[in-house]
Design a protein around this nucleic acid. Structure first.
Lengths: 134, 134
DNA sequence: CTAATCCTTCCAGTCAATGGAAGGTCAAGC
DNA sequence: GCTTGACCTTCCATTGACTGGAAGGATTAG
């Protein structure tokens, strides 16, 4: 299977697939003409990568997950730990964004938003503290 | 004021301050010895940058906000629109992370997490669909 | 035969910094 | 006066995870 078909089969851009090869996540065969030739197993691994990346795992985490996937003797506890850590990171990120959101909400609420040049949002960003921000 | 003091006054690393100069967000004077010399106004702008960056505005948005800040005749509506758009982007990001989180939760819940090699998380990532993921 | 499409490699750019090397300057202590 | 250490300068490379584009070879459709 050429790279274009592999791309279609995995919803990954060809650029990304070549990049994954570059960093050693996948090693397709080569056809006689030099084209990459993806086996079903390669496509399988690419889908694994697509899904784990879309779940927010970093490339290095994906590399670990793939190696656990390859390791018939792995303990599922290892995988579970990685996933738990990821959930915690996601939770932290969500909390951060929510706090940020509430600050922005306060700023927007206090801004009259018309043609007048005075603006509580800018005042707050400048540290002038006219809007009661978080 | 030297860059070290400006850094302390703004909670920004010196590296970052120099970077902001590089991309044209600030233009401090130079002392005779070649050292950067930050005025109170420079420090003010740096604080503005620190705060707007920490609220999640991109550098280009900060550049726009700064120019609106400099523009005595600006309309506060312009600023309000930018802030509103940012809130929407934050909302989208939060929703994305929450969906991701719930998928991860399902995976972790279905994984027995012991020494056994079979792992529903890996099965799911591989597309084997043994865990009921989102 | 030609044109379009696909494939190859390699280099550069993204975003917002951050790290480090090589070297100049300054203030304190002896 | 000299040394030490802290501070400053510039320049170059790296991060993460791709993405864009150029230059050129291979394949396919008509």
């Amino acid at each position: 299977m050429n790279i274009g078909n592999a791309a279609e089969a995995t919803s990954l851009p060809t650029k990304t697939i070549r990049y994954y090869e570059d960093i050693g996540l996948i090693k397709p065969d080569r056809a006689e003409n030099g084209y990459r030739d993806y086996s079903d197993d390669d496509v399988h691994r690419l889908r694994f990568l697509q899904r784990s990346r879309s779940l927010g795992f970093t490339i290095e985490e994906c590399r670990t997950l793939l190696s656990l996937y390859d390791d018939e003797g792995r303990a599922s506890a290892d995988v579970k730990r990685i996933a738990r850590e990821k959930i915690q990171k996601v939770d932290e990120k969500i909390a951060e964004l929510q706090s940020l959101r509430s600050t922005l909400k306060v700023l927007v609420k206090n801004c009259h938003g018309d043609q007048r040049p005075d603006c509580p949002i800018l005042d707050d960003l400048a540290g002038r503290n006219t809007a009661k921000s978080a």
